[in-house]
């Protein structure tokens, strides 16, 4: 599993880093983000890349598993 810690980063960095990780094609990608809109953007990215995204809140932040 590749983990992308994008917490606290400005747009579009979280999506860019997640996209790079997805493109490596090494299976599951876990993305950590701080903002709700970043969670939505990562979910949309996963969908556009034909992947399934599962999100959950971790405290005030979010964890998205892309597989």
């Amino acid at each position: 599993m590749i983990e992308v810690d994008a917490r606290g980063l400005s747009c579009p960095e979280p999506v860019m880093l997640a996209d790079q990780a997805i493109k490596k094609g090494e299976g599951t990608v876990k993305v950590l983000v701080s903002e709700p809109h970043q969670k939505t953007n990562i979910e949309k990215l996963a969908k556009s890349r034909g992947k399934k995204a599962t999100s959950k809140a971790v405290g005030s932040e979010f964890e998205i598993i892309i597989e």
Partner: peptide, 11 residues
């Protein structure tokens, strides 16, 4: 951004 620009994390 593609070359790695970032202003770092907010906390």
């Amino acid at each position: 951004l593609k070359k790695g620009f970032s202003l770092g994390r907010a906390y």
